[in-house]
Design a binder for these strands. Sequence first.
DNA 1: ATAATAATGATAAGCATTATCATAACTTTA
DNA 2: TAAAGTTATGATAATGCTTATCATTATTAT
Lengths: 146, 146
Amino acid sequence: MSTAELKEAREIFIECLKSRGLRYTTQREAILETFLSSVKHLTVEDLYNIVRQRHVDIGYATVHRNMKFLVECSIADEIKIGNDKARFEKHFGQDHHDHLICLKCGVFIEVHDSTIEMLQNKLAADNEFIPQRHKLEIYGICRQCR
Amino acid sequence: MSTAELKEAREIFIECLKSRGLRYTTQREAILETFLSSVKHLTVEDLYNIVRQRHVDIGYATVHRNMKFLVECSIADEIKIGNDKARFEKHFGQDHHDHLICLKCGVFIEVHDSTIEMLQNKLAADNEFIPQRHKLEIYGICRQCR
DNA sequence: ATAATAATGATAAGCATTATCATAACTTTA
DNA sequence: TAAAGTTATGATAATGCTTATCATTATTAT
């Protein structure tokens, strides 16, 4: 994530906090920046361990709480696979939540197909259903693991 | 589920058990039949409570264990939404795993679209990914809850 | 019948998530 | 600036679902 994007995300976060009368603390800043600079899909524990490098005394609960909050602010999305720990990824905007998930190495590949999106909406409409969000996960074997 | 289908599922189950040197017990029969005659997507707890009506002394662990086993035998599919309890539905065969899920009443509507399936496979192929199974969930508001 | 194997049922353990709460930090008000 | 009010934090307990353990029971094979 570029410096500009990071700055924008921070502003969205601060705005989201402000609108609820909440504060932009050093912990929140550290969590946000750690999250934004991460490449992979990290768990709360992963993030906790990284944030502690710069903010020694931060608590697990604080990281957990604020990751949930980043989701509410539409900065992060939470991914849950089975009973595994939740993982977090950057939010891409409406309807960009598709993943190819490798059953061997566990890698998440992000993908998008607007025709599928369109058909999903049609599928919902055919059932008189008002779609709000969706989740598409394709499990299989990635190129590296073949 | 018709009597014929029930009979077929039972035979698949028995076959699957046999191939592993396992037994078709009265508990397994009760669990299978309860599961097959259920209309909704039930949790282990739901199934446990229903099975107990006919098999008073059955244990929760037995129901849990055997529902997992039905999944392995491809008779049932497990559905996990967030941190909710797992729910089970009848297995429909390859690639029929799509759901419209109402955010108000929680109802699961089963849907299928072969064009989407096809596009999913294309999406995987474009990423040199070998798909094995997938999960598509569309969250929104159902007709009744509108 | 006896030995061997598997299944069951009760319960404990495991684990991720969430709630609680005393203390600390920050903001607002006077 | 001091006091009062509000929110955040961090440690830990509680919760809840899933899974493991194990003694006992049931079934199968010898």
